[in-house]
């Protein structure tokens, strides 16, 4: 199954906390050949003590999903056909996003598929993928297409590999900023 180079890009979105620097996010848009189209990353988001108190345990999810994830997707020039994240907190943006979102996690489970109204759990390669679809769409054709695209991509590339690139780029950005400071 050869991936189509003309399909909508895939967005790989993740957040990382650097000690003493704060929470940063990165979004890498790839074509179906895993080649980079766009990269966006945030400066660290710093929160005050008041905000930590007021948001409580929901703080990290709020920053990763509503603040960082939203800001990064707003900057994207191309609209990704699917946003993939390996960060559960970032995945909380699914409630508001009009984009399909897939949360991946390493899995050693047998291949199973659980379908719910808004999402499903897929086992693709060595990953468990929790796929969530936007609420106001005809879900089934979209679901079928995304499953095909994910499987096609995963045949050639590890689903977690692009996140290595994003983190490496964010680390370089951090190092450059610290050198400049």
């Amino acid at each position: 199954m050869n991936p189509s180079p003309t399909a909508a890009p895939l967005g790989f979105l993740t957040c990382t906390e650097f000690d003493g620097w704060g929470l940063c996010g990165g979004l890498l848009l790839l074509n179906q050949m895993a080649r980079p189209l766009e990269f966006h990353c945030t400066l660290p988001v710093k929160v005050s003590r008041t905000q930590i108190i007021l948001y409580g345990s929901s703080m990290r999810a709020h920053i990763c999903g509503q603040v960082i994830g939203k800001a990064l997707l707003e900057k994207a020039k191309s609209r990704p056909g699917l946003v993939i994240t390996d960060c559960p907190e970032t995945a909380t943006m699914r409630e508001e996003s009009d984009l399909p979102l897939a949360l991946i996690a390493a899995s050693g489970q047998q291949s199973t598929t659980e379908t719910t109204n808004s999402g499903e759990v897929l086992n693709i390669g060595r990953f468990q993928v929790y796929l969530t679809l936007p609420s106001e769409q005809d879900r089934e054709p979209l679901r079928q297409r995304l499953r095909r695209e994910l499987a096609s991509f995963a045949e050639k590339f590890d689903l977690d590999e692009p996140f290595e690139r994003v983190r490496q780029a964010m680390t370089e950005a951090r190092d450059a900023a610290l050198r400049a400071a």
Partner: peptide
Amino acid sequence: SCRVPNARVFSHVFPESP
């Protein structure tokens, strides 16, 4: 308002994919 400030984003668009 105790809204968390917007994240500042650095963007780079590749001129073309090789």
